[in-house]
Write a protein that binds this DNA or RNA. Structure first.
Lengths: 146, 146
DNA sequence: ACAAACATCTTGACATTCAAACTATATCCC
DNA sequence: GGGATATAGTTTGAATGTCAAGATGTTTGT
């Protein structure tokens, strides 16, 4: 089915392009913060966890980020040195820590979140309200498929 | 405008989520290839360049990837050792090389491209033909805004 | 209470990355 | 043409990121 295939190829290309652009946008934004992208990514995940399901343990955070706990140990060490986040003992499991943002880290997260909102506004500026709702609906389906 | 704002916040969150999922999907796929994600990314850019505008110089490739030329030198060294791509002298500028895929590299690129197509098919499986076309149209606008 | 499983940290070995210094070539300007 | 300047790529040194394997302390199941 060549017609169908060609539509898939087009969409695939667009997804790659979107990904590339988001990636380089994020790199540019992060560059001005003094952190590496990996460090900012950690801040983002921890910050999001704080909104959603609460503080994460090292293991869960590592899994979510796709790295080993050994990698995460030094990452958290560095961010803790910069007072952006902190380890607090798990209440019932003394092997575990819960990783949470400090006030300073929360501030950085909020600031970065604002950048995301601004980017989203920019890239949806040409869409009508209906198109935005539609885009959102399709994204929900697409994300659900992954 | 809180209603408008809330829609933007939702879209922003969805974009982040899409990005995260694409990212971890790519990591999983690449893991089984023996290359790092950065190396596969290089293969992808060079491969795409080959379709579009022809072979790239080191400097252009570095810019496209958001790394310094120093970083790219060792990246290309490694990929050349693995015979996935090669430097060829620039015809008129003897300071420059043109970076191109070898046959082996082209094979890897094609294989990876197939993975992308398959993923795209999967994640659009629940969309009707109209929704797909609509999604594609919105993506085009969005990408154009970046 | 004891063994097995678990969560984290530490260590050692590489890979990745950048900025800055360096080499070779190209371009500009007189 | 020829010297000054700019550019392309490489090399170097230092910091960061990464993993696998082993060590330590904790929890769980029996």
């Amino acid at each position: 089915m060549p017609a169908q295939m060609s539509e898939t190829a087009k969409l695939s290309h667009q997804l790659v392009e979107l990904y590339e652009k988001l990636s380089s946008w994020e790199q540019d934004v992060v560059k001005n913060s003094g952190l590496s992208t990996a460090q900012m990514h950690t801040i983002e995940i921890v910050g999001h966890g704080a909104h959603g399901g609460g503080a994460l343990r090292m293991k869960d955070l590592a899994k979510k980020m796709g790295v080993t706990t050994g990698t995460l140990t030094v990452m958290i060490d560095r961010l803790e040195q910069q007072e952006l986040l902190k380890r607090t003992p798990h209440e019932t499991d003394r092997r575990s820590y819960l990783i949470a943002l400090t006030e300073k880290g929360q501030g950085l997260f909020n600031e970065h979140h604002q950048y995301h909102l601004r980017l989203t506004e920019e890239i949806t500026a040409t869409l009508s309200t209906e198109e935005q709702a539609l885009f959102s609906g399709v994204l929900e389906k697409v994300i659900g498929q992954m």
